[in-house]
Amino acid sequence: MSAISPSAAKTPESTSGQPLLSVRNLEVEYRTKRGRVKAVDHVSFDISTNEVLGLAGESGCGKSTIAHAVTRILKPPAYITGGQIMFKSTDILGMSDDELRAFRWEHLSIVFQSAMNALNPVLSVGAQIIDAIQAHMPVSKDEARARALELLDVVGIHSNRVDSYPHQLSGGMRQRAVIAIALALNPEMIIMDEPTTALDVVVQKQIIQEIRQLKDKFGFSILFITHDLSLLVEFSDRIGIMYAGELAEIGPSREIFDNPQHPYTVRLMNSFPTISGPRIELKGIPGSPPDLVTPPSGCRFHPRCDVAIAGRCQEEHPELQQTSPRHFAACHLIDERKGNS
């Protein structure tokens, strides 16, 4: 799964099994007028070289906040209040502005949700790739432009569009252009924050295909943020399910799909149709995500959970526990099942 491609030459030490990205007990707060909102609460996960980790959850569960925290592009009122983010052996949270400027894009880049908003409307697509390259490498404009043409070609945009402005491109092409910018310095990891949400299903499929091919070709890792769980199941190696700022469950995609441990994951699965799977009745999840100013006591999902254990789930906060070698979930029902077996 994590075969190291030749282009991952930047990471000789990653062969030692050390994860490429390691997030530990990350906490992010939004300081709002109504009070402090813990949008991300003690979230930990690893991503290894050439791995795709998908993070899924409803709107407001903190998944995009994690993406922005890892790249340190959070803006006030959002603040990282605790935890550690390590990229190989560098501490991302400890970097100075200059170190960050040099680090980002060369090692870790990000693809934004809406390609229309991620591209500067008054600069040509080519210019937006070229300035990224020139910000990091002492190359001439012509060399940077040659590289830009190459990158556009890689993402399937004809090189004669290099001088096109964003408004002259279709939605799918804009997203490809944003991906080309993310690839500009051949980073070891790309964070993709709902890269296909604004696209129609057909284009969405194509882009996902292309991302997968690019990943195999260049050997980068992906942290893929989406609310579309069905997309993740076929695309990612592992999936993390977020609920109300916490990681509810994390494990290999197949296992999450075949044997979900958390009732929230089960409900989330049931709210998406599968194309190839058996016909099932789609069920939504009753209720709505909790207000994080005053999160529910105990398990945050208990008010919406139909299998909650009376007494315990309201009171006791469940911790992530291992259910199989690489599969973890935070639910009291796991204890119950263990006790029964």
């Binding site: 803006k75 980002r104 894009w105 809406s114 500067n120 990224a132 910000a135 910018i181």
Partner: peptide
């Protein structure tokens, strides 16, 4: 706007982000 955030993330100088983006 995202494109300003992205310009900063790309590592562009503050001057360029401020003026051109």
């Amino acid at each position: 706007q995202d494109y300003v955030t992205m310009a900063q993330a790309k590592g562009l100088s503050d001057r360029r982000v401020m003026l051109v983006y």
